[in-house]
Write a protein that binds this DNA or RNA. Structure first.
Length: 245
DNA sequence: GGGAATGTTCACTA
DNA sequence: CTAGTGAACATTCC
């Protein structure tokens, strides 16, 4: 379910709940006392990468859908309800199989908004600086680093690296200034493309390599292997994507 | 039915 | 104390 763009979409869909009051709470979240949010008005809804933030007067609820999480707006389903916020008749927001917890600190103190690829404060220069501080890291690991590219997930990572024709095991310090900057910018553009893809119902063809069988250009088999410290499955083309090492 | 997968987070060890 | 490792969580699809 979640990569950053999916959470942006969640925020858009849930936006009508802003300024409404939480009249009832349901669910089973071991991370905090659900009753704490009762009668709180929703001041704002924000996202940071894959995190969904429900801003209340004295604190924030942070929801992370992790790998299997899901949500329903004005609907319910069977299954482990972790957090259900009820705003009135047929007005509710339900989260399943997620991680929900409370953030007490002001958000600006917790989050570096310039690291969120779809945020207006996104700063490519700062991302490059963070990357250049550790030149031995693999680009495949770096793109998944939420402290640098909050919101980028394994799908976007594979698609970005294919688009810029860079092998995921490339060392960032060997890629060269221009290629690295291009890769950073593509993380942003691909995330917005991903959002449009999701909004249009995920038509076939958007994913060029992720979980695909063959290279769109050479029609040769793609490589699929676990990469780097994150050990996440990576899909790429050995012919197209250059290994900088 | 088994295995993998859009992702963190935490407990434990060296 | 820090860095690193593996388990835990929980759902859906092939």
């Amino acid at each position: 379910m979640p990569e950053g763009p999916s959470i942006i979409l969640l925020r858009e869909k849930a936006a009508p709940l802003i300024s409404r009051k939480i009249l009832n709470v349901k669910g089973d979240s071991s991370k905090f006392d659900l009753q704490k949010v009762l009668n709180c008005p929703v001041l704002d809804l924000k996202t940071f990468g894959k995190e969904f933030l429900i801003c209340l007067p004295d604190f924030t609820i942070r929801v992370h859908l992790q790998l299997f999480g899901s949500y329903l707006i004005n609907e319910r389903k069977d299954g482990a309800l972790k957090l259900g916020l009820i705003f009135g008749e047929d007005k509710e927001l339900n989260f399943y199989a997620c991680d929900a917890r409370i953030i007490e600190e002001p958000l600006d103190q917790v989050y570096d908004w310039s690291a969120e690829v779809m945020h207006e404060s996104w700063d490519a220069g700062k991302a490059l600086k963070k990357i250049n501080a550790k030149p031995d890291r693999l680009i495949g690991d770096v793109l998944l680093d939420q402290g640098i590219f909050a919101g980028v997930g394994n799908k976007i990572k594979d698609e970005v690296l294919y688009e810029v024709r860079v092998h995921p095991e490339s060392l960032v310090g060997e890629m060269g200034k221009k290629k690295l900057a291009d890769t950073v910018d593509t993380c942003v553009s691909k995330s917005f493309e991903y959002l449009e893809w999701e909004k249009s119902g995920r038509p076939e063809g958007f994913l060029k390599v992720h979980r695909q069988k063959e290279c769109p250009v050479y029609h040769t088999p793609l490589t699929s292997k676990k990469i780097g410290k994150t050990k996440r499955q990576s899909y790429f083309c050995e012919n197209c994507q250059k290994l900088y090492i």
